[in-house]
Amino acid sequence: MTEKLPDKIETIITPISLEYEYTPGTASTIFLRGMKQGRILGQRCPVSGAVYVPPRGSSPTHGVPTEGEIEVSDHGTLRSFTVVHLPIPGSEVSPPFVAAIILLDGADQTCLHVVSGCEPSEVRMGMRLRAVWKNRADWDYSFENIRYFEPSGEPDVPIESFRRESSA
């Protein structure tokens, strides 16, 4: 025994590797099929009428299945945002970048996406946005067919008009 052993062992590394095959579910399947065709599809709550995009299969406020295939616009309004200065583990997006809460025209539920195509300092609440899609040939069953949103040049929406808990 010539090897000198440490007095204290603080760390052992135990690699853990598990593989999962995820199921998007029937509602997300509608959305992902739409993405493949360059369309943004949501579903409607049969009780409140609210349109959920991307749909997750249930109306969270009423606990009932959402219905139909409702196409919404790829234009929307920026509700709020942050400029992120940290890298996201496992993402190709490099900081600083703008992560925004966006309400698409025709939808009642906000979604999260990246805003680009302008300086972060120009980004503001109420700003109008439009989707920038990947090349048609690269469309997959993925929300990431939309590379990011960029300013559309339409006039801003007054922030005071944002609704809260009204349509629930």
């Binding site: 199921t23 998007p24 579910g25 029937t26 509602a27 399947t29 299969g57 606990g63 009932v64």
Partner: peptide, 13 residues
């Protein structure tokens, strides 16, 4: 085909 929420919702109802 169904995710957890889609399996669960009708059972809860």
């Amino acid at each position: 085909a169904r995710n957890e929420v889609e399996i669960l919702m009708p059972v809860v109802t």
